[in-house]
Design a protein around this nucleic acid. Structure first.
Lengths: 121, 121
DNA sequence: TCCATATTTCGACGATATATGAAATCTGGA
DNA sequence: TCCAGATTTCATATATCGTCGAAATATGGA
């Protein structure tokens, strides 16, 4: 991943409204949420939300699809993986004991770490 | 983690210069790097670097200690873990097959995932 | 075709972030 | 005490971001 796209993604997330939206979409899964639903849940003007959804979309963190009259947004898990991977890539450089707690915190957050490791056995 | 501190940290990282510095410090490990060394490596004016180090420091992502005439900066791995954990916390909500690739990307980046999992066997 | 619904685009204002030279601060040593 | 080295603070100019009403666009159905 290029540093410029990492910066773009981080900037997109560095905003309370957008971060909230993004986490909502991450939670929502592949089905996603319509723009109107998000605007209602967050009590935010449609035009403001649209601008922020656009920013997240341009950063590659979410995608949209039309579904009837609504436009449904979905989180891009692959891009999220790339971004977090980029932040972590140079970690643990020769010091496993330092990033051990980090790894534990991550596996706590991503529950399928356990299953992805035990399921392969 | 509060959303406001997540936003502060993300904003601190959403800047090419600061992101580069942060990754340098993550690489450098607990020994850290003196401000002057960083400024020289990156060919950036000391005052600019100082402002950016200050931002990262206020966000809690790095810490400084005086060592002779130099001020040495170090990455805070614990805070990095908290931030990334916050971004991931709501992931995988009932859909392990979705975040599986994400988990694999992360374990690729953080090499001690393997050791932390295989060492316990 | 015409209307109601769902979202986006446009425009303009205020607020915030960035960069950097010059001066100030702090440290170690003679 | 005085000096040189290392870094920060200050002040200022510049550029970018965020918000939201009003108008424009796209869709589905009668």
């Amino acid at each position: 991943m290029e540093i410029s796209s990492a910066v773009t993604s981080l900037a997109a997330l560095a905003h309370a409204g957008r971060l909230t939206v993004f986490r909502m979409l991450v939670q929502a899964g592949p089905e996603g949420l319509a723009a109107g639903v998000i605007a209602q849940r967050l009590s935010v003007p449609p035009s403001s939300l649209s601008a922020n959804l656009n920013l997240l979309s341009n950063a590659g963190l979410i995608v949209s699809r039309r579904e009837g009259r609504s436009i449904v947004y979905t989180a891009r898990y692959d891009e999220m993986a790339r971004l977090l991977g980029y932040l972590l890539d140079d970690c643990c450089d020769g010091s496993p004991e330092i990033c051990r707690p980090l790894a534990e915190r991550l596996s706590q957050a991503v529950h399928c770490f356990d299953s992805s490791n035990s399921a392969s056995s």
